[in-house]
Simulated scan of single mutants.
Amino acid sequence: MTSPALQIAVAHHRAWTAGDLEAAMTYIADDVVLDAPAGRLVGLRAYREFLAPFAGQLLIRSEMLAAFGDEKTALIMYDTETVPARSAPAAECVTVRDGKIVHNRFIFDRVPFEEFRRGQAGDGVR
């Protein structure tokens, strides 16, 4: 793994999937842009608020499926087992500058999570 961008992307992934959000955030630029299924988020705080519930409450485990990168860009694909879904695949295409992720295009299937939320809301009505 000689790609600088890939090293950062994989280190970030390993940190947050191990539950170490503090370490994971050290790889994120203050002015990061995150494009996710729910829309665009800007800044370190917004990125952390996006990732924290998933990493801290829903994630059971993660398995890296593929990882590629060059000097500035890395693409990782992984599958996660989560509280609402046995399989929740995702991919992240990140741009790295000065050792920090400055842009993350984060793609995942929202359906299992929306179904889980609807089920949780239904439990409260009974």
Rank of each mutant, 00 (worst) to 15 (best):
T17M: 07
L59T: 02
R126G: 11
L59F: 04
R86I: 10
A46V: 02
V10D: 06
W16S: 03
V10Q: 07
S3Q: 04
P4G: 04
A88T: 12
S62C: 11
A36G: 00
Y27D: 02
L51H: 07
F108A: 09
R126Q: 03
A15L: 08
A52Q: 13
P89N: 02
A55R: 00
L44E: 13
K100P: 02
Y47R: 09
Y27V: 05
A66H: 14
F113V: 01
T2Q: 15
E92G: 10
F50V: 01
D70E: 05
N104Q: 07
R118N: 12
R110K: 09
R86F: 11
F113H: 04
D79C: 15
G69H: 03
G43C: 01
G69C: 07
A24F: 10
A11T: 08
L51M: 14
R48S: 09
F116G: 06
A23M: 08
L34K: 05
D35F: 13
G56E: 05
D31V: 04
Y27R: 06
V42P: 02
A67P: 05
M64A: 13
H103Y: 15
Y47L: 06
V83R: 09
A5N: 02
A38G: 12
R97E: 15
V102N: 00
C93M: 13
A91I: 04
F116H: 14
G69P: 03
P112Y: 09
H13S: 14
P89G: 03
R61W: 13
G124D: 04
D30L: 04
A52H: 09
R86A: 14
A90R: 11
F106N: 06
P84C: 01
D35T: 14
L21N: 00
I76T: 13
A85S: 12
E81S: 10
G124A: 10
P89K: 02
G122V: 05
M1Q: 11
V96T: 03
L34G: 05
E92P: 00
D31I: 03
L6P: 03
L51W: 12
E63K: 13
V10H: 04
H103P: 07
I101Y: 07
L59Y: 05
R61M: 13
T17A: 07
M77E: 15
E63D: 15
D79P: 11
T2N: 15
Q120E: 10
G39L: 02
G43V: 06
L6S: 00
R110T: 15
N104R: 02
R86C: 09
M25R: 02
A24W: 08
L75R: 05
R118S: 10
L34W: 07
Y47E: 10
L6I: 00
G56D: 06
C93E: 07
D123L: 14
G43I: 06
E71Y: 08
E115T: 14
Q7L: 08
A67R: 01
A74V: 03
G69N: 03
